[in-house]
Design a binder for these strands. Structure first.
Length: 137
DNA sequence: GCCAACGTTGGC
DNA sequence: GCCAACGTTGGC
């Protein structure tokens, strides 16, 4: 089982909205970056990821699960890009801020730190465990 | 196929 | 609001 990290500006789509969408989930649409696309293509049903609030908050705030694997994004006229469907699993009792992540030496190689612009990122098993525990899970 | 120009993202 | 980093576009 791999783990992932999804970035969203809360003003565009927040974890609260993801929670409100319930078990039916929502498509993670609008990705127009090939590296992010490749990451989504690698996702398997039931895999989990962090939900990260960029710009405002700048913190990992919750956990989501893949409930539908990669399929074409109908809003992409070129037909090159696609999306997966996600549902909220649970919120972190304590959001883990970017500041806290940067301060943790074991997370120095996280994609979030090294390539902050990538919107859909892989997370290693160790990073997953560390951030979950920092978040109070 | 190179690369300059431009647009966007996202931390600060 | 600024600007660095990065991706994309388009002229040559």
């Amino acid at each position: 089982m791999s783990h992932w990290l999804f970035k969203s500006e809360p003003s565009a789509w927040s974890f609260d909205q993801q929670v409100a969408a319930g078990k039916a989930g929502t498509p993670w649409n609008g990705v127009r970056n090939h590296q992010a696309k490749l990451n989504m293509m690698a996702m398997k049903l039931g895999e989990t990821g962090f939900f990260y609030h960029s710009n405002e908050g700048k913190a990992v705030v919750g956990i989501v699960a893949v409930i539908k694997t990669f399929y074409p994004d109908p809003s992409d006229a070129t037909g090159k890009f696609g999306m997966v469907d996600l549902r909220a699993v649970e919120a972190l009792p304590k959001p883990v801020t970017l500041e806290a992540i940067k301060a943790e030496k074991r997370l120095a190689k996280m994609v979030l730190v090294v390539n902050s612009r990538l919107s859909v990122q892989p997370v290693t098993a160790a990073e997953w465990r560390i951030i979950r525990s920092m978040g109070g899970l």
